[in-house]
């Protein structure tokens, strides 16, 4: 029955969809358009979406280490995010296997303890951690960020991986044990290969959190050589490097790796099961 009513409904649907997409995409469109606009077009009013004389100069500027330290920040972010996600994934593979498959007294209590972490936001920890990091002599080192990010992402990683490990049929593991495998061999030869998509997703989740983090980085890091992207870009905003086009190009280049990583695991994450464990 394709009546007037259905057509009207479809029109309303499309209009709402366009409003929604405008709201969602406007900041991205603005960033992209500004990153291609020459300086004299940045302040035109009323605002223009399409640059009249598109230019690549801002991207060239951002990638030129002589005028903009973007690549140093990028390297720092990459290093910190990669190492914290890597260390985190090893700890959480062991931990979540222990939760999912091994029985011992106190397991439930430890699991609840891990869940408690959800109640502590970064802002509650930044003062005592700053004191602790300084006393340990880790102030102004990448190590301070790596250990902090590993711990911040652990609860979610444990939750996501634990859920996935429980879906690996126990009978396969039992058969392997009868065949003479030790538990560690079971983890290494069966659980890890079967859980590859979950492990990759959790790694990417932890990577994204570290890539994004500003609060701890702003407090633990002092020298400009060690700044990560969020810290470095925010500080550049208040200096003579403050050139709209260049900041926008830098923002785009900061976002692209994360968006690509996310799209690669979107199908897995949007299953709902895993997203349920996210912590901000």
């Amino acid at each position: 029955m394709v009546g007037k009513n259905t057509i009207l409904k479809n029109i309303i649907f499309v209009v709402l969809l366009i409003i929604l997409l405008t709201f969602v995409l406007l900041p991205f469109v603005t960033m992209l358009s500004s990153s291609f606009k020459p300086d004299n077009e940045q302040n035109t009013f009323p605002p223009q979406i399409m640059p009249e004389n598109p230019t690549m100069e801002h991207y060239k500027g951002v990638l030129n280490p002589d005028i903009f330290p973007f690549l140093i920040y990028f390297k720092n972010s990459l290093l910190v995010a990669f190492l914290s996600a890597g260390i985190g994934i090893v700890i959480s593979i062991f931990g979540s296997y222990s939760f999912a498959r091994l029985e011992y007294t106190g397991r439930a209590a430890i699991q609840r303890g891990v869940l408690l972490v959800y109640m502590f936001g970064g802002v509650l920890l930044v003062i005592p951690l700053f004191q602790l990091i300084t006393k340990l002599g880790l102030f102004d080192t990448r190590t301070s960020l790596i250990v902090t990010y590993v711990v911040q992402t652990l609860p979610v990683s444990l939750y996501m991986l634990g859920n996935y490990f429980r879906t690996v049929p126990e009978s396969i593991e039992e058969a392997a044990i009868i065949d003479g495998c030790s538990r560690l061999e079971v983890i290494y030869r069966i659980v890890i290969p079967l859980s590859a998509p979950a492990i990759v997703s959790v790694f990417i989740y932890a990577f994204m959190i570290a890539w994004n983090e500003y609060l701890f980085a702003s407090v633990f890091i002092n020298s400009s050589q060690l700044r990560t992207l969020p810290l470095g870009l925010n500080q550049l905003f208040y200096t003579q490097h403050y050139v709209w086009g260049r900041m926008m190009a830098a923002s785009i280049l900061t976002a692209i790796p994360v968006i690509i990583l996310f799209l690669s695991i979107e199908r897995f994450i949007t299953g709902g099961l895993t997203f349920g464990g996210v912590k901000e």
Partner: peptide, 27 residues
């Protein structure tokens, strides 16, 4: 298995106690 369970969860417990729970009380 129980022993292995403790060993595998140990890094998690150490990390979360030193960098989350201890700081909360220290705060």
């Amino acid at each position: 298995d129980a022993k292995l369970g403790y060993w595998l969860i140990l890094p998690t417990v150490v990390a979360i106690s030193t960098l989350i729970f201890y700081p909360v009380f220290y705060n």
